[in-house]
Amino acid sequence: MGSPHQFVAVVDDDDAVCRALKRSLRSAGIEAETFNSGEAFLDMLSSADSSLPGCLIVDSLMPGMGGLELQRQLAPTGVPIIFIAATLDEAVRGKALARGAAEYLKKLVDSALLISTVRMALVLPHVPPSDSP
């Protein structure tokens, strides 16, 4: 699946969602770390000994920094991002996918679909998107 230190970062302001996603990922042998905000995730990245995750699972709507802003800030890294949302807002979904999101799923996603989506994202090359249209 990649580097032995590869992990998935889950960024969601709902602790129950973080726990459920982490449990699902770990049951499939995928290491996961959770963060309750985009700011908390970026703070972790700014620490000297941190490394980029293999992919992110991000809530599209959170207090403070939302998923689209986090995606914008992480665009230069090329880290695949899977969005999750309580309701499917087509405008937000369209923006996320147009900006290179790996997928956009409804919360309470089937565990098998989540795992297959994460596995797909983990094998995507980490190439920052080009600036060309």
Score class of each variant (00 low, 15 high):
Gly66Pro: 11
Gly66Val: 07
Gly66Cys: 02
Gly66Gln: 03
Leu68Phe: 00
Glu69Lys: 00
Glu69Arg: 00
Glu69Val: 03
Glu69Cys: 00
Leu70Lys: 02
Leu70Ile: 06
Leu70Gly: 01
Leu70Asp: 06
Gln71Asp: 05
Gln71Glu: 06
Gln71Phe: 01
Gln71Arg: 02
Arg72His: 09
Arg72Phe: 00
Arg72Asn: 02
Arg72Cys: 05
Gln73His: 06
Gln73Phe: 01
Leu74Phe: 10
Leu74Pro: 10
Leu74Thr: 05
Ala75Gln: 09
Ala75Tyr: 02
Pro76Arg: 04
Pro76Tyr: 04
Pro76Gly: 07
Pro76Asp: 07
Thr77Leu: 13
Gly78His: 11
Gly78Ala: 09
Gly78Arg: 11
Gly78Asp: 08
Val79Asn: 01
Val79His: 07
Val79Leu: 02
Pro80Asp: 12
Ile81Glu: 02
Ile81Asn: 03
Ile82Gln: 00
Ile82Thr: 00
Phe83Met: 12
Phe83Gln: 08
Phe83Lys: 06
Ile84Trp: 03
Ile84Val: 15
Ile84Arg: 04
Ala85Val: 05
Ala85Lys: 03
Ala85Arg: 01
Ala86Thr: 11
Ala86Trp: 03
Ala86Asn: 12
Ala86Asp: 10
Thr87His: 14
Thr87Gln: 14
Thr87Ala: 13
Thr87Trp: 07
Leu88Pro: 03
Leu88Tyr: 10
Leu88Ser: 13
Leu88Val: 15
Leu88Arg: 15
Asp89Ile: 04
Asp89Gln: 09
Asp89Ala: 03
Asp89Cys: 07
Glu90Tyr: 09
Glu90Val: 10
Ala91Ile: 08
Ala91His: 06
Ala91Gly: 05
Val92Gln: 05
Val92Asn: 02
Val92Phe: 00
Val92Arg: 07
Val92Trp: 01
Arg93Ser: 14
Arg93Asp: 09
Gly94Thr: 15
Gly94Val: 02
Lys95His: 08
Lys95Tyr: 00
Ala96Thr: 00
Ala96Met: 06
Ala96Gln: 04
Leu97Ile: 15
Leu97His: 11
Ala98Lys: 14
Arg99Met: 13
Arg99His: 14
Arg99Gly: 14
Arg99Trp: 12
Gly100Ala: 09
Gly100Ile: 00
Ala101Thr: 12
Ala101Trp: 11
Ala101Asp: 12
Ala101His: 12
Ala102Met: 15
Ala102Lys: 15
Glu103Lys: 03
Glu103Cys: 10
Tyr104Lys: 01
Tyr104Trp: 06
Leu105Gly: 10
Leu105Val: 03
Lys106Val: 15
Lys106Ile: 15
Lys106Asp: 05
Lys107Ala: 04
Lys107Gly: 08
Leu108Ala: 14
Leu108Arg: 14
Leu108Ser: 14
Leu108Asp: 13
Leu108Phe: 14
Val109Leu: 13
Val109His: 07
Val109Pro: 05
Asp110Ala: 12
Asp110Phe: 11
Asp110His: 08
Ser111Ile: 11
Ser111Pro: 02
Ala112His: 06
Ala112Ile: 05
Ala112Leu: 12
Ala112Lys: 11
Leu113Glu: 13
Leu113Asp: 12
